[in-house]
Design a protein around this nucleic acid. Structure first.
Lengths: 116, 116
DNA sequence: GTAATCAGTATCACAGAGTATACCAACTGC
DNA sequence: GCAGTTGGTATACTCTGTGATACTGATTAC
C-alpha cells in the first residue's frame, strides 16, 4: 500500500519526461536558445553564431521551437523584410533546469574521466 | 567588458549541456532509470515493466548506462546465473533534474494545449 | 550590371536510432 | 522428454535526424 502511493502516476511521469526531452532534445535546440538568449535576433546572425549548423537545421528547429513557444518570431514587413527572434519568458522557466544540466554535465565529464 | 564576463565559457556550457542530453537522451533511458528506481532488478523484469521496449534496445541502453555509471550490473554465478541491475548513488544525483523535467513537461503540456 | 545580404526552401544522401523477429545455452518444472 | 524462463545476441529492416548543396526573390551596395 505504501508502494502504491509511491509509484502512482509512473507512466504519466515518464511521458512528461519524454515530452521535456523531446522539446529540448536533438543537437541544436540548446545552442539556439543559448544564442538567442545571448542577444542574437536575426536568422543569419544566429546561424553565424552557431558553428556547424546549417540553414536547413536552423530553420527547422526555429519553427519547432516557435510551435513550442520557446521563442517568438516577429516579422517587420518594411522595405527589406526584417525578421526577429527572441526568447519568451516561458523559455526562461527552463533556465534552472538548463543550469542544473550544465552543472551535471560538467561533473559527469569529470566523474567518467576520473573513474575510467 | 560586462558582457565579456557574462558570456564567458558559453561554448563550454553548451557542450556540458549536450553531454547531459546525450547521457539521458533517446527514447528509453529515462523509462529505464525510472523502472530500476522503482525496484525492478532483473532483465526480463525491467523489460516487462516498460511497454514497447525490445530486448535489443534494453540490452544496448543498459550497457551504455553502465558505462556511464548510472547503473550497476551484478552477476551472481550461482546455479542459474542471476543478473541484477541497480541504480547507483551517482544516478540519484540526477534525481532533482528528473523531477524538474517531469514538472516542466507537465506544465508544458498544459501550456501548449491551452494556448493552442 | 554584378555581387552580396536577407530569410529562408528544395532536393538528395547518409548514418544511426529504433523495430521485428528469430535464435542461443543453461536451467527449472512437470 | 517438452515447455518455459533467464539473459541476452544476430540479422535484417525502417525511419528519422542530420548534413551537403543548390537555389529563390527581394533588396542594397558598388
Amino acid at each position: 500500500m505504501v508502494k502504491a502511493t509511491l509509484v502512482r502516476n509512473q507512466a504519466e511521469e515518464v511521458k512528461a519526461l519524454q515530452d521535456t526531452i523531446y522539446v529540448i532534445g536533438g543537437k541544436w535546440k540548446l545552442p539556439i536558445i543559448n544564442s538567442i538568449c545571448n542577444g542574437n535576433k536575426r536568422f543569419r546572425e544566429i546561424e553565424r553564431s552557431i558553428p556547424g549548423i546549417t540553414t536547413r537545421m536552423l530553420s527547422r528547429e526555429l519553427k519547432e521551437m516557435e510551435m513550442n513557444k520557446l521563442i517568438k518570431r516577429t516579422v517587420y514587413p518594411d522595405s527589406p523584410v526584417l525578421v526577429e527572434y527572441e526568447s519568451t519568458p516561458y523559455c526562461k522557466t527552463f533556465g534552472n533546469i538548463i543550469l542544473a544540466m550544465i552543472e551535471w554535465g560538467k561533473e559527469h565529464k569529470k566523474y567518467i574521466q576520473e573513474e575510467a
